[in-house]
Amino acid sequence: MMKRFLVLLTLLVLATGAAAQGGFPREIVDDAGRKVLIPQAPGRIVSLAPSNTEILFAIGAGDQVVGVTDYCNYPQEAQEKDKVGGFSDPNLEAIVALAPDLVLGTNFNDGVIEDLAQLGIRGLVISPGTVEEVLTAIERVGYAVGRDGEAGALAENLRERLLAVEEYIAGKERPRVLYQVWHDPLMVAGPGSFVDNAITLAGGDNIAWDAARGYPRFSSEVVVLRDPEVILSPKTHGSGAVADAPLPPGWEDLTAVKEGRVYSIDADMIARAGPRIVAAIEEVARILHGEKGEDK
């Protein structure tokens, strides 16, 4: 019995291994438009962004990762990997020293990927700009590192959960939402930002819809005028949280403030183009549409 089980297990491992290794060399076009040929499943990956690190670990490629940035704080195991420095300014020598066979960057460190290419090190820019693109990024990373099965399953699961949120918010009134990135100067999540996309998917209307793209400075007067019903702000580790800051002048009469609907969200979850964005959307949907007083 035991023997048969072991044989079965061995076969299974071989089969999945073969599947994972199968199909190489593979060609992939990255988000910088580069055509990259990957000769075999990479075994020494360096991730140059927290979002990429989260994707790699979520699709079971954590063991293939040899280096991450100082900002890669999730999951726990990622923190035990070798560090290659910051996000936009990683240490080139530290990367080379790890002898990676694949480096995963974003459009923030496109230049580094270029430099590495000059040194003969293969790199990919993976930069999803929307929640939908995160799901395809997961599948593409899975394809690039030979974790197609896991990546497909994860993307499928996330897609289902997004559909569930869509059903949950269907027909419900969309509250006016302000995402306050910083208080002085007032900075918000503008259109085209990840957070804006998440708020929309969670069934809210971002009151900064007409601001500049990304995370611009925003007029406090317009906040008073548009009167948000819910205010969200990032929860960061350590001090300097927006939630601890004094309320900007004139905000006492905002509906969100009077009704106590001011919440903090884990910034790493909602602003990162990683798999946890879906959990963040679920949380925001509960905040926006759950029974009053249910969350806090």
């Binding site: 100067p185 007032l186 503008g190 900064a208 007409d210 601001a211 500049a212 611009p216 400075r217 925003f218 007029s219 317009v222």
Partner: peptide, 11 residues
């Protein structure tokens, strides 16, 4: 600074 590309503000 606060009107030219309102509601975005410039430094």
């Amino acid at each position: 600074a606060r009107t030219i590309i309102s509601p975005t503000e410039l430094p």
